[in-house]
Design a protein around this nucleic acid. Structure first.
Lengths: 208, 208
DNA sequence: TAGATTGTTAATCGATTAACAATC
DNA sequence: TAGATTGTTAATCGATTAACAATC
């Protein structure tokens, strides 16, 4: 699977995650149809077939999809058939909360180290994860084969922290800082901007 | 401004938030053009003019937009010209982190109370916010004029907690629990699903 | 074979971009 | 007036939905 595959609309991906999650909840059945998946996910059956068709032919006309095979295929498509070592950058309130969150590990995302600019935090262990001084970032990223970082630092230092991460070899960043990161295009970034989300709610609630 | 206005594409709203944020950083200038906003936000000038045109005529041909007026207009459009009292539901790791986060208040979002199912937390005060037992939710929502909730409870109780919030009068929910909430359509919901976000990064990183 | 459901093509819908007349 | 930039219309692009021949 390469970049030159026919273009996948970006919105397909989170839907695959949803299909995958629903599929994992089936424990009695062997087969599932796009119609059934539609009822359990809220997406239309046409869209589900379309989404899957971007990646191959997984079903059998007249029967549907075998749950086990489809799960395996989506798992592979999403890149979940491996472990992702994750670096947490910034062990403040939010960083600590994420460090303690158990949901990531289940899907193969494992926070294997943390760094913080506050030297007095270095050496501490939170939820089994050791905190290092920020200037050891390069060393840790290489030693622990880390490709992904979660960024939970204050706004003012987000850009430089992200650049340091990229310079160390990090390929994708999950950014919680309220800062628009400017990074090379080959670095994947997902940005959770909590204020923007609240503003969406505010907008919607204001125009009833 | 009512529901019957010409339809606003939903993706316009987070862009308005971005424009607003950039506008607030200008302190020397009086006028700004869509061209300049384009450079500072990364969106095209055509898109910026288009987005603003959904809500009225804010600019002057040949000159651009006056920053103060545009800021005021966007603030009003987003519903930020008032205070939003927010209830935090679930004072665990993530809930506590959000309680301590200072960024919300600046935009008029104020967490005025918290509830938790763990009775032993009741009465405690975190960052100036009092924690109540969950069965007082109705009382608090009414007394404190709360319309918005942030949901940071475990997956298993997310649905029932959301329903309780709605029954108390909450109109919009910012959901951090990894659960797909089924609520009446008039309730606004934003869902941050951290695992899905990590899976997007995983997908993108897997197909270079 | 009859019934069911896929994979895909064509039609529709919606959002973005280009272009430019209107106007400051 | 000359130069700049808006607001809007038309063209393009992209994603979703409908429909159905192929096939289990």
């Amino acid at each position: 699977m390469t970049k030159s595959d026919k273009k996948i609309p970006p919105r397909v991906i989170p839907r695959l995650s949803r299909y995958y999650r629903v599929l994992r909840e089936y424990d009695q059945k062997t087969w599932v149809s796009s119609r059934e998946l539609s009822m359990d996910t809220g997406f239309t059956d046409a869209q589900i077939r379309r989404d899957l068709a971007y990646f191959g032919q997984f079903g059998q006309p007249g029967k549907g999809y075998t749950i086990e095979e489809l799960k395996k295929s989506i798992k592979q498509i999403l890149g979940l058939d491996r472990q992702w070592n994750v670096l947490l950058i910034g062990v403040g309130n939010l960083g600590t909360a994420l460090l303690r969150y158990k949901g990531f590990r289940e899907q193969g995302f494992e926070i294997v180290a943390a760094v913080d600019a506050d030297a007095s935090k270095a050496g501490k262990i939170v939820n089994g994860v050791k905190i290092y001084p920020v200037d050891e970032i390069q060393h840790i990223v290489r030693e622990k084969h880390i490709l992904m970082a979660i960024l939970t630092v204050p706004e003012q230092v987000a850009q430089e922290a992200a650049e340091a991460a990229v310079a160390s070899g990090i390929k994708s960043i999950f950014n919680f800082a309220p800062a628009h990161l400017r990074l090379p295009p080959e670095v994947q970034v997902r940005h959770i901007d909590m204020t923007i989300e609240l503003e969406r709610l505010s907008f919607l609630s204001s125009r009833e």
